[in-house]
Every structure is written in C-alpha cells, then in structure tokens.
Amino acid sequence: MTINNEFILEIVRLVLYAVGLIAFAAFNAAYLSLLERKIPSWFQLRYGPKEVGWWGLLQPVADGLKLLTKQLLVQRGADVVLFKLAPVMVVIPAIMCLATIPFSETIVARNLNLGLLVIFSFSAIHVIGTMLGGWASYNKYASIAAARVVAQNIAYEIPLLLVMVALVMVTHSFNLHTIVDQQAGGFWHWNVLRLSASPLMPVAFIIYFICMLAESNRAPFDMVEAESELIAGAFTEYSGMGFGLFFIAEYANIVVGCALGTILFLGGWHCPFNLLPGLHWFLIKMYFLCFTVIWVRWSFPRTQFYGLLNLSWKVLIPVALAHLMITAIMLKLV
C-alpha cells in the first residue's frame, strides 16, 4: 500500500513539474518579449509599449491573442509534415532542458547525475528543428537560413563544449546540484572566480556567454533570423502560432542558457555574501544574465557570416583549448 502511495505521489509530482515548467517557459517567453521591447526603449530614449495595461504589462497577452487569431498557412510546395513538426521540435527540447535545472536547494524536477549532459544533448536538437523548418518551407530565404544555422551552431558548439569539459574536470561532476553546492560561501567561491583551477576562468565564462548567444541565435549572431537580409530567415513562411512556438523556443533557450550560466559559473542559488541562499538569488542572477542578453542585442549590429565563423574558429576555440590545457596542467600540479 505504501508503495502504491509513493507511486501516486511521484505521478502527481511529475505532472506538477511538467505543468510548472511549461508555465514557467511560457511566462518567460511572454514577459521577456515585453522586456525585449521595454529595455531597448530605455536605451533609445523611447517609452516602449505603454498603452496596453499599466506599463504595457498586458502587451504579451495582446500579442498572444493576435498570434492565436492568425491562420496557419502552409504554402504550396512545402513539406507539410516536416513544416508542422519543426516548431514542435524546437520548443520541446528547450522546455525539456528546464527539467534538470535546479532552481533552488529543493526545487528541481529531476536531479540527474548527468544533468549537464542531458541539457547539452537536448539543446542540440533545436538546431535540427530550425533547419528542418527552414528547409521544409520551400523558400530560398528559409533555405539559406537553414544552411546558416547548421554552420553557426556547429562552430559554436565546439568552444562551448570545450569550456564545459574544463569545468567538469574542475568540479568532478555532471550533477548540477553538486556543482552549485561546491560554490557555496560567497562570490569568491564561484566558478567564475575559481582562479586556482585556471586563471582563465572569467574568460571561460565570457566564452560560455558568447556561445550561449550564438546557440540561441540571438543578436549579434541572429544569422538565422536576419530580418534585413532574409526577411525572417527560417521562420519566413510561418504564421500564427507556428511562428509563436519558435518565439517561445527562442526565449526558453535564453532562459535555459542564462540559468545554466548561473548554475555553472555564478553560484546558483547561493548569495554572493553568504546570506539567505534561495530561489530569489537564482532568479536575480538569471534575470541579470537575461538583461545582459538583451543589452548585448541592442548594443551591437549583426555580424557578417564570416565574422561570425572567424570569431569562433580563430578566437574562441583556441582560447577555449588553451583554457582546457591550463586547467588540465593545474589539476595535475595541485
């Protein structure tokens, strides 16, 4: 009987976490899109949306309603199955990544021993989704974007994984909970300042951040969307909620990337001054990183494609490799 009860509790827990995470992802997509319009309005001395609700707070609702009322068009010549599958393939992995992310000491859907690996496996899937979406659209702009997304994500996957390998060598764990626990006790214990492991740790964090921008196809690396060159890139032919799902996925990816950056480098839910650890510190750090993502987007113009690849192959990968080797040497010496 007790086994039965535990089983039911486990099911309830699963359903609660699934609903909670989907709600979290959707909420973030909605309100990050509002911030995406509010924050640049401050930078550009404007007001941003302010008519719909107080401070424009109902703007995402209005946007969502608008998207829901639009017809889902599939153009002639498109591969219907892949075309309809692509947004789903983009949005599901992004939400699944959230399942292993520990928001605080106790709030985590699944505390996996290989949590970090799971996140990187799933976050690679959205590339396939975007590529299929662009390719199935039967549109030259979308096809160009599909080719770009593959080249870009392969180029930036490498430095990202090199940085992660170095980090895992230092932490001896793939478990995100363990990695955060190692960083307890003030900001000087955070991985970003763990200079005893490698003097290049702050650089590694910056490489992680740049790669995260490129992986989630954010400006200045938004070659996939590239409005001024490719209309809307891979999303050109999508209308209504098909486009809306890509939109949700983009912001869910940003949230996953920022949450992971917080966990791996910025001490997760631990306070910088060793006071009151908890969910709020995690959210503060995560949203600060989200703010930085938006800040970067509105500071820099889109790079050219060779500039994008040059940055990865000529700068990020060599530096990440150097970081990896220094970490290995220092691990052996100390």
Binding site: S41, W42, F43, R46, W298
Partner: peptide, 19 residues
C-alpha cells in the same frame, strides 16, 4: 571596444525619453 559600446548603451538607459 565592445565594453565601451555596451557602457555607452547602458548610460543611455538612464536618460529621459525624448518621445
């Protein structure tokens, strides 16, 4: 130069809107 650019953009966030 990237840092300088981001700093300038951030400073603008504290100015009054001209709209």
């Amino acid at each position: 130069s990237l840092c300088v650019g981001m700093w300038i953009v951030l400073l603008h966030a504290f100015r009054r809107p001209v709209t």
